[in-house]
């Protein structure tokens, strides 16, 4: 009886977690006329890739009429998402890897105060800083530029990355570094050649968390990426709704394409991801 309850709970948990994603996948391969039928099917009678063809095709049809292809927009937004998320991840991890180590191992004036203030900004919602930031970015000419968006991402994700990297370094034995210092190695050399290689799993975890956060951003690019020059997928896809006709097949197909990078990360690097979440949440 208790085993049965356990398996029921397990089943509900799995269904709750991937059910909606599965439904989006089913929708994305269901023909348009089957989407508006009353019969509930867990897999379409006839599978179709026409929604994907609309995304990737050079020409596009909607309700029998030829309409403008969304591929130029879609590909540009996909590229923007990848570029900004990737650049933000590299910068954040690089800065946090060196900065986090300095906060743990080096003594300098104001160290603890600076660290507390920076981690404290985790409690500040994005909108509290976004309005003045918008005016700062306008006067710096950085609205709708990769530089502007990436810098904002870095400032948003750096506190958590620093927190994670600090806990990674704190868990490392100091004796290793001391041995290298006694052999005459400089502190920076020790960090690059001995500490960073050992911090690999922590760096990967930090990178994954940063990438996922940047990939999913919506509020920041909604304000700071008004045109296709830098507009990411998360801002482009909802715009498919605002036309007079809502093409749910297309939207679900676009959504499925947009979740490919996160899903790949979850499949191949889930160990690091969970480690990072646990380290970031506890302590």
């Amino acid at each position: 009886m208790r085993r049965l309850g356990f398996y029921a709970a397990l089943g509900i948990l799995i269904l709750w977690s991937i059910g909606p994603v599965y439904w989006a996948l089913v929708t994305s391969v269901t023909p348009p006329n089957a989407l508006v039928s009353d019969i509930l099917r867990l897999w379409p009678e006839q599978m179709t890739f026409e929604h994907y063809a609309k995304l990737f095709g050079a020409t596009s049809t909607s309700q029998g009429n030829e309409v403008q292809s969304v591929w130029p927009q879609f590909s540009q937004a996909f590229f923007n998402s990848l570029l900004t998320a990737f650049a933000a991840t590299v910068l954040t991890v690089l800065i946090a890897a060196f900065g986090g180590w300095a906060f743990v191992r080096l003594r300098f004036p104001g160290r603890d105060l600076i660290f507390v203030v920076i981690v404290g900004t985790l409690g500040v919602p994005a909108y509290t800083v976004m309005i003045p930031l918008y005016r700062i970015m306008i006067s710096a000419g950085l609205v709708d530029t990769y530089t502007g968006v990436v810098l904002i991402y870095v400032s948003a994700f750096l506190p958590l990355a620093l927190w994670l990297m600090r806990s990674v370094y704190q868990a490392m034995p100091l004796s290793l570094e001391e041995a290298a210092w006694l052999d005459g190695a400089s502190k920076l050399y020790t960090l690059v050649r001995i500490v960073l290689p050992l911090a690999g799993p922590g760096l990967v975890a930090t990178a994954i968390l940063t990438f996922l956060s940047a990939w999913g951003q919506f509020m920041v690019p909604l304000v700071f990426s008004p045109t296709l020059d830098t507009k990411p997928l998360t801002v482009l896809i909802p715009e498919f709704v605002t036309r007079n006709y809502v093409d749910y097949g297309l939207m679900n197909a676009a959504g499925i394409v947009a979740i490919v990078p996160p899903v790949l990360l979850v499949i191949f690097l889930n160990r690091f991801l969970v480690q990072g979440l646990m380290a970031g949440a506890s302590k």
């Binding site: 799995i14 977690s17 996922l212 999913g216 998360t234 896809i237 749910y248 939207m251 899903v263």
Partner: peptide
Amino acid sequence: AVVVLPWCLPPVVNAIIWLW
């Protein structure tokens, strides 16, 4: 991995999936 999946997806895409 299955359980953390929803957290990893872009909130906008989640919302679109549920909108449908």
